[in-house]
Nucleic acid binder design. Structure first.
Length: 422
RNA sequence: GCGGCUAUGGUGAAGUUGGUCAACACACUGGAUUGUGGCUCCAGCACUCGUGGGUUCGAGUCCCACUAGUCGCCCCA
């Protein structure tokens, strides 16, 4: 029997973890600067939290890990927004927090999809939600936060795609116009599009199958159906981005997969040719009615999610130097019958704040030196039987010269020599 | 859910038209060298080629199924 990770899941081995810590640290710093606060919601929720009425997205309809326990049906979260808003409503945070309430989250998400480059069944998302206020400035600020994270990872080959879905009135008008336009062509469209025609005609524009059909090219544009207010809102978002120096591209086809979006939607994609089919680094948008869906007041919100695996992979491809974990400063070797002296010496070093390792099993001198080499320690401390008697040790310096130091003064000596790393 | 490609030790891999011991390199372990290492030299390191069937006198090499990886479609972070 071979044991291995389930399909689409993977282990992050110690070798890889520095990259994650680096990204997480930068994210923490940036969310702090923007005054966002972390929220942790369960990894599974009542299925109804994710499976909403009138939701036509595949993610919700066929990619969820749903399981039953007794009478209850639960689902592993496929995305972060639903849980955060559920918590916001459940705990009535609209009354307890200053609005807009600002949340960030980081954790695993689960979708039962076929794995490929940049897509796993368990993957990690960082996301933010800004709930309870609505303004073009907030939309721009939200995009800026994500953009800052991407920049902090030294990723430069990305572009911001942006679009507006308008308010309810604009969308309703557009929806009717689209249905009218596509009605005569319905039989030419793919099966998915025929389903979308009823459920969410906007998504037809997103279709890859029917992309090149004439009726797509002649389809009315959403921008033609925006009312005055929606147009002004979007223009102001763009103006803010201009002022912040964030380059963007308006993409009229961008409607996003989740059905709850209104007004501003955006997607930041990699422009690297080696990014594969899953090039989106982060994506999100505004939602006018999602907060009330779970029983809260009719507040608007905006958020986005970053795919952490994609972020880290891109940073790697772009040559970002990940912050490394602290190296070993001192390695302690024991020769002969030295009892617990090695252990005590290493502990003294650690208590003095020095990253240290010691040889704890009886091994040949050669093997111990080899470990010392591999640990990358700047200093090798050698303790033999004579030294134990005298209360001293031999310290090998980086230039391979050797000095005798009393065990009591060893931590101070190593600090003095600049031993504690950088 | 659909399609292409792939699958040999800890790692990178070689394995000819199916026919001896499954190369080579790195890594690892031990020794030369049990009070001083990173060099060198020597030795060891795949009862077996993702799993299960089949064809054959004979299969790592051919066929089928399954599993996994990978890339693409769908979808999406």
């Amino acid at each position: 029997m071979n044991y291995q990770t389930p399909r689409g899941t993977y282990d992050i081995l110690p070798e890889e973890i520095a990259a994650w810590h680096d990204a997480e640290e930068k994210i923490r710093r940036i969310t702090e600067l923007y005054r966002y606060r972390e929220i942790r919601t369960p990894y599974f929720e009542d299925t109804k939290v994710f499976k909403r009425e009138n939701d036509s997205s595949d993610m919700v309809n066929k990619e969820m890990y749903t399981f039953a326990m007794g009478q209850e049906s639960y689902t592993l979260r496929p995305e972060g927004t639903a849980g955060v808003i559920r918590a916001f409503d459940q705990h009535k945070l609209y009354g307890a927090m200053e609005l807009p309430a600002r949340f960030w989250y980081l954790g695993a998400m689960f979708r039962h999809e076929r794995p490929q480059k940049g897509r796993q069944r368990q993957f990690t998302q960082f996301g933010i939600e800004n709930i309870g206020a609505k303004s073009p400035e907030l939309d721009a600020e939200t995009i800026a936060l994500g953009y800052d994270i991407v920049k902090a990872m030294d990723i430069s080959s990305v572009k911001v795609l942006i679009n507006t879905l308008g308010d309810d009135e604009s969308r309703a008008a557009y929806r009717e116009a689209l249905k009218q336009h596509f009605a005569p062509y319905l039989s030419e469209l793919c099966g998915d599009c025929q389903r979308r025609y009823e459920q969410n005609p906007l998504r037809i524009l997103d279709c890859k199958v029917d992309h090149d059909k004439d009726c797509m090219k002649t389809a009315p544009k959403l921008s033609e159906y925006l009312n005055e207010e929606s147009r002004a809102y979007f223009d102001q978002v763009l103006r803010c981005l201009d002022e912040l120096g964030i380059p963007y591209e308006i993409d009229e086809r961008l409607v996003r997969g989740l059905d709850y979006y209104t007004h501003t939607v955006f997607e930041v994609v990699s422009t690297r040719p080696d990014s594969g089919a899953q090039a989106t680094v982060f994506a999100g948008g505004r939602y006018d009615h999602f907060v009330s869906y779970y029983g809260g007041p009719d507040l608007s919100g905006i958020g986005f999610a970053i795919g952490m695996e994609r972020l880290i992979a891109l940073a790697k491809e772009e040559g970002h130097a990940f912050k490394e974990e602290p190296a070993c400063a001192a390695y302690v070797i024991g020769l002969g019958q030295v009892g617990s002296t090695v252990l005590k010496t290493v502990q003294d070093l650690r208590r003095a704040g020095i990253v240290a390792e010691g040889n704890m099993v009886p091994r040949s001198l050669k093997a111990q030196f080899k470990s010392a080499d591999r640990s990358g320690a700047k200093f090798t401390v050698i303790i033999g039987e004579d030294e134990v008697r005298n209360g001293t040790c031999n310290v090998k310096l980086p230039d391979r010269s050797q000095v005798s130091v009393s065990l009591r003064e060893l931590p101070a000596y190593i600090k003095e020599q600049g031993g504690n790393n950088e």
